[in-house]
Amino acid sequence: MKIAFVLFDGVTFLDFVGFYDVIYRLNQFECSKGVTWDICGLTDEITDELGMKVKVQKIRPHLADYDMVFVPGGLGTRKLRFDETFVNWLREAQDVKYKVSVCTGSLLWGAAGVLQGKKATTHPRAYDLLAEYCDVVRERIVRDGNVITGGGVSTSIDLGLYVIEWLAGVDAMHEVKQQLDYPYLPPKVVEILEA
């Protein structure tokens, strides 16, 4: 599996790092070895909403070449959803096997048309913005077919654990929880089965 982590100016780095720190552990398990990833953006350096900077590995790669595309949230999403260059780039992931977001990253999937006819979630303070694009489910994690969305910032770890369990099994998820010293019970996950 090849994963693209999509970053942008105004991202909340905890959205990204919470998921990343969990999901990179897929390579520990026999059934999910061989996972690779790229940290991607439209420019070579991204500045988060607090001023922290990070270098990206791939500048505007073709997102259709990935198996999973992950989009974090952040204050920058409010304006970025109207940025045609970014939204058109994200549209390249329309046929990617797994489309994942946490927090207001779902607004960007919505702007790219990925959430049309789907159910999704986001940060509770952005439910009204997400309603423009899809049916909003007020839960921490929603999986509608191959689109998986998570709630606010802290959900990034829960979301990563859900994806680990989904791809590598419940034992793998419990092993990662122990590695992280993560004592919390998994949140309710709303799963919409495709017809």
Rank of each mutant, 00 (worst) to 15 (best):
Y184K: 09
A195P: 13
D65K: 09
R140I: 01
E194M: 10
K79M: 11
W166S: 10
P183F: 10
F29D: 04
L115K: 09
T149V: 01
V11K: 10
H123P: 11
P183S: 05
T121N: 08
W109P: 05
S32A: 15
T43P: 03
V6D: 04
A131P: 00
W109F: 05
G73L: 04
I157K: 02
L80P: 14
I192S: 08
L26N: 01
D67W: 00
V114I: 14
R143N: 15
I59P: 11
T155C: 10
E45N: 15
R78P: 00
P124I: 14
F16W: 02
I59C: 03
R60N: 01
E92F: 01
F13M: 12
A172K: 05
R138Q: 02
I59W: 06
E165D: 14
M1P: 15
T43M: 09
K177D: 15
P183E: 15
E165T: 07
V87Q: 05
A93Q: 04
P183Q: 13
V56E: 12
V69R: 05
Y24N: 02
K55D: 14
L129S: 01
V163Q: 01
V87N: 00
W109Y: 04
R81V: 02
M68C: 11
R143E: 09
F8V: 12
I192T: 07
E194W: 09
H62C: 10
D135H: 12
V22I: 05
G10V: 12
F29V: 00
K55C: 13
E84T: 15
G145W: 09
L63R: 05
I192Q: 08
S101K: 13
T85Y: 00
D15I: 06
G73D: 00
M68R: 02
Q116D: 07
Q57A: 04
D181M: 06
L26Y: 13
I141L: 06
W166T: 14
V96F: 06
T36E: 11
D135P: 00
Q116E: 08
F70T: 06
G41I: 07
I164P: 07
G145E: 15
R60F: 11
P183R: 12
T121H: 08
V136H: 06
V71Q: 08
F19P: 02
L50D: 13
Q178R: 15
A126N: 06
M68P: 06
R91E: 03
C103F: 14
L26F: 06
F86Y: 08
T85D: 02
A195Y: 10
L159D: 03
F82T: 15
L80G: 09
F16K: 08
I3E: 08
K188A: 08
R78N: 02
G113R: 08
T85R: 07
P124K: 14
M173Y: 06
S32I: 12
A4K: 09
E84N: 05
G73I: 04
P187N: 10
A126T: 06
L115W: 13
